[in-house]
Amino acid sequence: MPVPILSTRDLTKTYGRGPDRFDALRGVSLEIDRGDSVAIVGKSGSGKSTLMHLLALLDTPGGGSVHVEGTDARSLSGRRLNALRNQMFGFVFQQFFLNHATTVLDNVVLPLKIAGMGARERRARGMAVLEQLELADKARNKAGNLSGGQKQRVVIARALANNPRVLFADEPTGNLDSATGRIVEDILFDLNQNHGITLITVTHDHDLAARFNRRVYIRDGQLITTDEEHAA
């Protein structure tokens, strides 16, 4: 049996103490295979974004474990953990988190600069992903001058700059009109279906979730793993 690219076992996460204690996740076990597309679906406060942050190694669990290709993330030092996250994962968030005062290309290559890649290679890699997303003509534009759909495509380009194997997207169309959102969705599914990138998206949009190979529903920090159970 192939080893899942990501898996969790009995994952828990708690915030606060005493009367302010909030159990965001309560014993979540999940496996995600290479090349899969998975929608994590739930209402606000259900724990879906907490789960994504733990899968992406952006936070540490209170209990349980996260495994990346069979390796327990707890066994990785801070430097190794950061390197793994930078090399394997790309991130697309609802809030664009772009520096509006710098160029589109500068925004796209920022992760590569952090990783220590040379300027010439950074530029070549950045221009390649901008070409892929039909934004090469905007490379020198200030990011703040773009439309919402263009900004989200820049965010996707930035996520692709390090050739990730897993792309995490948190409500990626939440700030977009329906037509622009559909274009962004099509880009994400093309990356999954035609480029083999594992796609993990957090959403409360059931129409978007329906396009994924798998839907995992979360309620009160616990998973309902099938559409049938969710409907019940």
Rank of each mutant, 00 (worst) to 15 (best):
R140Q: 11
R85Q: 14
R165D: 12
L191M: 09
K142E: 09
R120M: 08
A128N: 12
K113E: 09
N192Q: 13
R153V: 15
V184G: 04
V166H: 14
V109K: 01
T173Q: 04
F93W: 04
H100P: 07
I200Q: 09
G181D: 06
N99L: 15
L112I: 04
R153S: 14
G149A: 08
G148H: 05
N141V: 04
L81G: 14
R79S: 11
L76P: 08
D186L: 11
D170H: 01
A159L: 10
D106Y: 09
N99E: 14
L199N: 12
R80D: 13
A124P: 03
R165S: 14
A128L: 15
A119V: 06
V155G: 10
R153Y: 11
D137V: 11
H195V: 05
T198E: 15
P164W: 06
N82W: 11
N145W: 10
R140S: 15
D186P: 07
F189Y: 08
K151V: 08
Q87M: 09
T173G: 02
R123L: 02
P111A: 02
H206G: 09
K113H: 01
A139N: 08
D170N: 06
R122P: 00
S77C: 05
R85A: 11
N194K: 07
D106E: 14
A139V: 12
L176V: 01
N175H: 09
G144A: 07
A179W: 06
R140C: 06
L105N: 03
S75I: 06
T180E: 03
G181S: 13
I197L: 15
G148Q: 09
A159D: 00
R123P: 00
I200W: 10
S75R: 13
L146S: 00
A128G: 12
G126Y: 05
T180A: 02
E131T: 03
R74A: 13
N162M: 13
I156E: 01
H100V: 10
G126M: 07
T71P: 06
A73I: 04
T203K: 09
T173K: 07
G196N: 15
Q95V: 06
E171M: 04
D170V: 03
K142W: 10
F93E: 01
V92I: 11
D205Q: 05
L191N: 01
H204W: 00
T203M: 10
K142G: 10
K113I: 03
H195P: 04
G116A: 12
S77W: 00
E121R: 13
Q150C: 04
K151L: 14
L105G: 07
L167Y: 12
T203S: 12
D72W: 10
R140K: 13
P172N: 07
T180K: 03
M88R: 10
L146Q: 01
N99H: 12
A157C: 10
I197M: 11
Q152P: 04
T198A: 14
A136C: 08
A139W: 12
G78T: 12
M117E: 07
G126D: 04
G78L: 01
N192A: 06
G90H: 02
H204P: 00
L110D: 01
K138I: 03
